[in-house]
Write a protein that binds this DNA or RNA. Structure first.
Lengths: 304, 304
DNA sequence: AGATTAAATGACTCCGGAATCATGAATCCA
DNA sequence: TGGATTCATGATTCCGGAGTCATTTAATCT
């Protein structure tokens, strides 16, 4: 009769088990999800096993003395996550509370591109609460794909080609330095040679490129500080009077009469795009077409 | 910690209750869902009430001595339906069983347009099982909107404008009659006057138009049978040698050397479209882009 | 009014499955 | 090799909520 009778014909399915499995899947293994609580440990182990029995498929795989989630497990986790989000959305929107929308991007994007337009964004989302989550492009793409994130802003080259995207503009890097450092007509090279700088700690994809370029130009800047993020770098430029290379969108951070910037010679601009989770897009409580609206708001002119 | 903790912070949510509510919502009221079983009656009443407590919103409304489902209730039902489908799909596809895809349309479309191309359709759906469900356009649109159906084929004018659609072609009506009935050069009128006919029982939107036209032309066909569907009409044309008005796509039913057809003079062609449920479209086990593939296969030339 | 139908509610029983604790088995690490 | 980590499993308790039946409330029909 009912098309879902067969779903409940076999026992072993319950919200609790789905919830437990989701926790394990998010944590990656049981120990991490259980957080040294032996009760949770045994519960998780058992419930995952019961779900595997229900779906007749291995959701986990033993690797060494721990387990990891199989592809099928991740698929199921995505289904569960979506489902719980929808129920939660429904409840929140019925209660008249704002739905919350998760957007992932790099810290520099969040601080210098999203936050300055935050009000317009929440407006476009019908008053939803925006939760900004900082992570690297690959992680954002994965998050959007499996429903942990509703939106993401990433380099276009990190987006799998079948995923829909909205172009926002390009971002390159520029040298930021106090006005005084820029002697009349002097270029980037001159500032780097003469003015003390701040730099990122080695590690990122950008740092590679940057130090390679310095080497090729036989430039040896005087580095007074090494920090771990662009936002910290910006703070150094602002308050310590150092020069530094930052993403172009960092201009919003500075008073144009005190800090000037100039693009780097090897500065190849990277196109950035907004991506969105297909199913989150028409969640209860969100206006239709929100990704397009959001993209329009967040788009910037590519200052080439 | 976990974003869904608040969903489970309050008790009152369970798969059983969601399932019960879905049954009630599909039946329209408790009595119908309970089918005179007093146990189910009290269970349904109670569980619906518990869900209303959980979501803090009225899912039902009393009207007369029965209840009906509120707008919010229908929204929730759609969420549940989608969720159960996904879990079911996941299980079925894990078990290697073909996912089943529900397509709704009028009987004549199903029999004369879809079924002749059934193999190609299931191919485009990655071997899914196609479930063909017969219902009228408005009902199909509603079904696709709330997730009961994955696809539908309906008159374009029945589709709300925000819903995406794929054009398939137009369908008009034509008079079908044995070759012998068509004297050299004689038109539709002549056949109607001379040859015994079969007709639909009064009721449909088509019948209205058809009898109106007959009246305006002062045509009084000799009606030997009245039946309740086009498919039955076609059977009469085929086996009883009667003439009848059928949708143009019924040509596939007949041997062109025995039965001829001609369009009706007032025959205004109706554009037909494929519609699809946005979320069903990328269900587990279905190839991407399936609606576009399906549309390509089902498209016919408009024989104007 | 009385009869009938639909839903809500009270008052239970009973069971699935969650919670808990203890222990076993496999793997890794020092 | 011995101890630590991680997961599996056995055994038992306990509770939420499903199942059941009887009764009440309310609207509708005749």
């Amino acid at each position: 009769m009912n098309p879902f009778d067969r779903l409940f014909a076999v026992s072993g399915l319950s919200l609790d088990r789905l919830r437990s499995f989701l926790e394990v899947a998010e944590a990656g293994n049981i120990a991490r999800a259980a957080k040294a609580d032996p009760t949770r440990q045994s519960q998780f182990s058992r419930q995952v096993k019961e779900l595997e029995g229900f779906f007749v498929v291995a959701l986990t795989r033993r690797v060494g003395r721990r387990i990891e989630i199989t592809t099928e497990g991740h698929q199921l986790a995505a289904v569960i996550r979506r489902h719980f989000s929808e129920l939660d959305d429904f409840r929140e929107s019925m209660a008249g509370r704002p739905v919350s929308v998760r957007l992932g991007a790099a810290a520099s994007i969040l601080e210098w591109t999203v936050i300055p337009k935050l009000a317009a964004c929440t407006g476009a989302l019908g008053g939803a609460t925006l939760e900004l989550e900082q992570s690297r492009s690959a992680e954002v793409v994965r998050g959007v794909a499996d429903g942990r994130l509703d939106f993401g802003i990433v380099r276009e080259d990190a987006v799998p080609k079948e995923m829909k995207r909205w172009k926002l503009g390009t971002i390159g890097y520029a040298l930021f330095a106090p006005k005084a450092a820029w002697k009349k007509g002097s270029g980037v090279d001159a500032v780097i040679k003469a003015h003390p700088m701040a730099d990122l700690l080695p590690g990122g994809q950008f740092h590679e490129q940057w130090s390679g370029w310095l080497f090729s130009q036989s430039l040896r800047p005087k580095v007074e500080a090494r920090v771990s993020s662009f936002t910290q770098l910006a703070r150094l430029v602002r308050h310590a009077g150092l020069a530094a290379v930052l993403p172009e969108n960092a201009v919003v951070e500075f008073d144009a009469s005190r800090i000037l910037s100039a693009g780097l010679p090897w500065n190849h601009e990277r196109p950035m795009v907004l991506i969105g989770n297909a199913r989150s897009l028409d969640r209860a409580g969100l206006p239709a077409k929100s990704p397009a609206l959001l993209a329009r708001i967040l788009t910037w002119k590519s200052n080439a």
